[in-house]
Design a binder for these strands. Structure first.
Lengths: 342, 342
DNA sequence: GGTTGTCAGTAAAACGTTTTAACGGAGGAG
DNA sequence: CTCCTCCGTTAAAACGTTTTACTGACAACC
């Protein structure tokens, strides 16, 4: 049951451990017959090098970490994330890197960061100023910020504000009572999304609405978990409350497709016809936005490309130590009209 | 730019490296004032322990690997996988474990297995007899087989054959020309899915169809990539070919929801009405099956639960070395009728 | 006063590799 | 015959931790 190590192979083949290492990694520096003998011995014994020892000595683990601010379960509730990972995977695979998903450990992002045996991080949905970001630089591994706001670190984002503005404008022309669904609040005590993606999207919504004379107040935006269930529940509750107050909304701006799907479900359950009784616009254009019933009007961003770009940026950082500048990539976002708007 | 190590802290605090380690991990074995001084020094210097060294000495990396037989990108093209990971994540998080996605490295599953710095593997979609499975036992880390077939190793599956049988029976009562869509063939040269999940689902389809007198031949099943795009393309091509031959299908059995989504799209493009002109049944019941247009009739399996069960099995293996028996968990699968069947 | 015990802290081994520098022997050049 | 070079191989250092066993020092006990 004990693992076979390099010294076992060495002993069995009658050579030194160094010779085994060379035979396996730099065969040209050994006589062909020795190489052959050592390799055969290793094969017979079933030798597999210990990855931890390897990582320690070569200072690389062959994996990049994807740091997410929520649990894995919450994270994948949003199909956006799977699509994003497809891009990351595509970017990493050519270099033979694995992907490690790193959720907070016992609620602490810092702890998770320090423990994860990875060569670099893709930080998604976190601000550079976030307390969890500090250990990152201490860890001494490079990182790229995605869907956050970074000044000094390289980052990848889409034009959240512009996309949101277009969506809101499209609705504000014909509606006065627009329900805006945002991201969750104070999950874990800290207001996680007051900056970053949400801040920008809300800013876009607000700008458009105000241009059309719709006043924006503190409670203009309704918090919602980023999942169909979250959207369903948040919409149902808010719609009910507003209807009672005589301000029944006729359109919805959802800050995420995942949320919008929930809105559609809730609306269906309540007997609202879409888009006649209620227009809905999501954000992201995840693959299934085009498939749902009716097909979702949404703001399209190149999710998969975003992942690939982020991975490429990080790989660049991994190879050249001394990349000085903080490159900030901005990807486009544009409104695509489908069946949930007239 | 150099990382601060434990000896830096030790030197700076005027103690031995051992004392630093104790101060951080077993503070009770040191005087309170020393502990405080060391911790303060560590904080000021920004010390973060090296995860590789930690993993080497404690023989645990704090991560479990999810071994997939395709690229990350291909894997996440099937929404099934994200849902599965939600369960795995839920199972792992309470123990504070990260998740590492391990795709084949340079086409070799073996290489990927030996390099990944993880404490155990969830092997999805691979047979125990698969060449890639051998290095697993050599690695000396425990593993659980999911969606494969294992005799000696612990495994988790759903009742693929039973679910498929139910679906096929439901159609065979009213249809004679049923198109069966399977998994991709010979990707990478080896016929990856002739066993395991596909074998069982096809067996279920076949049994039902033959009971209704529909003959099953070598070309009864059409290969399809497990993604909407794959399903779209495979269906369009097969439908065309069969129509020309005067055997235009009136129903489709898709071995996966992801494929079925593609069928719906292709059918829509071709002007086929669903379910009037074509009935479709998928498999898995991914979250969006209920949302698509029309809602997909499919075979439901408890995907998220499957992930959780697999994680729990693996965690058990990680804790108790000497768990002898190969537990094989079988989860239920049942047909749920929605809008793509009459 | 010797034995025993506890306490705070340390030296050194261990984990399993890679890599650097050195070594001995053989062969060739002078 | 000596010196130099080359070749195949090895000893030992390095990576950064944790852990085990040990060392003094000091107090307590009989």
């Amino acid at each position: 049951m004990k693992r076979v190590t390099i010294v076992d192979v060495a002993r069995s083949a009658g050579v030194s451990p160094a010779a085994v290492s060379l035979a396996l990694n730099k065969p040209s520096r050994l006589s062909p017959e020795t190489v052959e003998r050592v390799r055969e011995t290793a094969r017979v014994l079933g030798y597999v090098p210990n990855p931890h020892a390897l990582a320690l000595v070569q200072k690389r683990a062959g994996a990049v970490g994807v740091l997410v601010p929520q649990t894995i379960s919450e994270t994948f509730a949003n199909p956006y994330f799977a699509e994003f990972l497809r891009g990351v995977g595509a970017g990493c695979e050519e270099k033979g890197l694995s992907l490690q998903l790193v959720p907070p450990r016992e609620g602490s992002v810092e702890k998770a960061v320090s423990i994860a045996p990875v060569d670099g991080f893709l930080v998604v949905g976190l601000s550079e100023e976030h307390p969890g970001a500090k250990p990152l630089s201490r860890r001494g591994v490079p990182f790229v910020v995605v869907d956050g706001d970074a000044e000094k670190a390289p980052s990848v984002n889409c034009d959240d504000e512009g996309g949101a503005y277009a969506a809101a404008r499209f609705l504000a022309r014909r509606h006065r009572k627009i329900l805006v669904l945002g991201f969750p609040r104070s999950s874990g005590g800290r207001e996680r999304f007051v900056w970053g993606v949400e801040k920008r999207r809300l800013r876009g919504y607000r700008r458009a609405l105000e241009e059309y004379g719709i006043t924006w107040t503190a409670d203009s935006v309704t918090a919602s978990a980023v999942s169909p269930e979250g959207g369903e529940e948040a919409f149902a509750r808010a719609f009910d409350r507003l209807s009672r107050a005589g301000r029944r909304p006729t359109a919805v701006l959802a800050a995420s497709d995942a949320t919008a799907f929930g809105v559609l479900r809730a609306a269906g359950r309540m007997g609202l016809r879409i888009p006649e009784d209620l227009e809905v616009i999501g954000f992201d254009d995840v693959p299934f936005a085009a498939f749902c019933n009716p097909p979702l009007t949404t703001v399209r961003q190149p999710i998969e490309e975003k992942g690939r770009v982020a991975a490429e940026l990080l790989l660049g950082l991994l190879e050249e130590e001394d990349r000085p500048v903080a490159e900030a990539r901005l990807l486009p976002a544009r409104l695509v009209l489908r069946g949930t708007t007239v």
